[in-house]
Design a protein around this nucleic acid. Sequence first.
DNA 1: ATATTTTATGAAACGCGTTTCAGAGCAAGG
DNA 2: CCTTGCTCTGAAACGCGTTTCATAAAATAT
Lengths: 332, 332
Amino acid sequence: MNDKTFTEEGGRVTNIKDVARYANVSVTTVSRVLNGHPYVKAEKRNAVMEAVQALNYHQNSNAINLSKGRTMLLGVVVPFINHPYFSQLLHGISIKALEEGYTLVLFQTSYDRDKELEALEMLKHKQIDGVIITSRALPYEQVRSYTAYGAIVLCEDSEGGEMSTVSIDHYESFLAGMNYLIEKGHRRIGYCIARPSSPNSMLRLEAYETALQSINEPINANWAFVQCLTMEDGERVVHQYKHLRQKPSAFLVASDQVAAGIWMECKKQGIRVPQDLAILGLDNHPIARALGLSTIDLPIDQVGRELVVRAIDTSSIQKKKYGFTIVERGSV
Amino acid sequence: MNDKTFTEEGGRVTNIKDVARYANVSVTTVSRVLNGHPYVKAEKRNAVMEAVQALNYHQNSNAINLSKGRTMLLGVVVPFINHPYFSQLLHGISIKALEEGYTLVLFQTSYDRDKELEALEMLKHKQIDGVIITSRALPYEQVRSYTAYGAIVLCEDSEGGEMSTVSIDHYESFLAGMNYLIEKGHRRIGYCIARPSSPNSMLRLEAYETALQSINEPINANWAFVQCLTMEDGERVVHQYKHLRQKPSAFLVASDQVAAGIWMECKKQGIRVPQDLAILGLDNHPIARALGLSTIDLPIDQVGRELVVRAIDTSSIQKKKYGFTIVERGSV
DNA sequence: ATATTTTATGAAACGCGTTTCAGAGCAAGG
DNA sequence: CCTTGCTCTGAAACGCGTTTCATAAAATAT
């Protein structure tokens, strides 16, 4: 065959056939070279590689995926994209996913169960290869029922060996936060969490109660603030705090965003931090550093990366748990 | 393969052939029904729909895409995922993309030109259908040279009819910000922008200079702060500000994050806002509301959605420009 | 009644790789 | 010298839809 037959791409993208023809081998051999299979003579291998170079060939991922019966797509279930916690988690996820050649399909749920189910259904129909659930609204059992269809990775501390989990040790971190506050002399401690029913919140609650029991403090229901996600929620907390007859001397706040809101509203209201009210945040967001808020640093990027790893490696179920570091600044 | 009968999916996902067999029609007819083509008798159409229902059939997107020669993938070039401005933009983009059935391939570039090129090369090789560039490092001409391969949408105010653009009117918004400060009695006005060489910054600079010329104020090079993206950068600005012999009385800051950093550092340093220094931010991020920062509200979500629309609709090139609203709070 | 056009349907080709299968060449083992 | 077992290669099947083409039947026009 001479080069005459190679009509320099008629607007078409070069495909494996073109390469095969150019290199004077079969498409099978080209495929073998491309996939690093053994049993190809160096001579032919080189011819193929030269052809690939010469024709600037790139594989058609659709064809590959159709052939291999996979999608290279990973579903990511996230309640809110633009909340700093989740956007940071997403950051870690996206870096690792790109590294591994996977593409993300974002499901922003706002904790809508149907949106969550959408991701699971896509997994069932092999439209995505795996699902990372950064935070769920669906019951555990319902999620579990989809495990047969692909990897589902949870970002929580749940029991059960059916799904890989990657998480922060929420119990220990919250306990450590409580103990830190206690060490600093606080006994009347309130807390702010997001959804009280979430698995993570449950663990935090448990840690909270354990810590108070250890110093024989009763639990004051008025010092529990839920649905705290944003700075606005933090402000709301301070407003409610002001009307308490009996006030806590410290808050353990499960989000720096909320902690920041509390801090700022305190400034506005003339409540001194930490003299009148100590604040210990969580996440170590940039804003915490900026405001000088003490907080608990979590390796969110790392968690994000590991979530991807677990979603890709379907050979085993694993439960990873990451530690934390208390960051002392001026708010406690 | 022994699937002569309807063995309730032998681990396999039902495909179009199964549906055809079940409905007693050809795959062509099934395809026609699924794609809403005309010329299918109601009777057969119903039979197909029933079969789809009964077998819980879902199309294989890989096969469809291979067939149609598209990917339903949209590249999104973003310098930083976890910067509030971009994460909000991403939020809008992702909502609209999901709505339209498109999936996003995130390219987090950190303004690395090679990463940007990666997205463009993927477009060239038909691995993605379009590219949304939220902020670019590559020269305009180089990006333009890829327009033949698919839709490229820019999030900037550039001239030229080769690519769709969706943007905020940066010139007008910055000018309005300047005029607002001038109205409030300021004449010595400094500014903070991100990359001085970016197209958006150029427009802002132009507006800045125009505004100062209109009140016959000279331009003071010491009042120009560049590379301002984060709260930390804002703090840095205040440190530098303190060492200025001649100080501006106001800052126009092209990011609320930076404005927040300035505000907080001012509090720390005892610089009164707005008496000693007025601050006008940009973006209307949650933090601006929380701190009571005056700012310029931009419809970022809307921009994100429109970016997707332009990336999908390849029938025409359009240039959309969005307005802004000055939000008066207490920092000016 | 005949010529056209429209409606309706399926077989087959196509998009583009991967994988299976079969066969050939060649070296080591008995 | 004859098995046995690698090494190497390509034809063909496969994954799963869409689209083209051919054909047939029905409706409309002449």
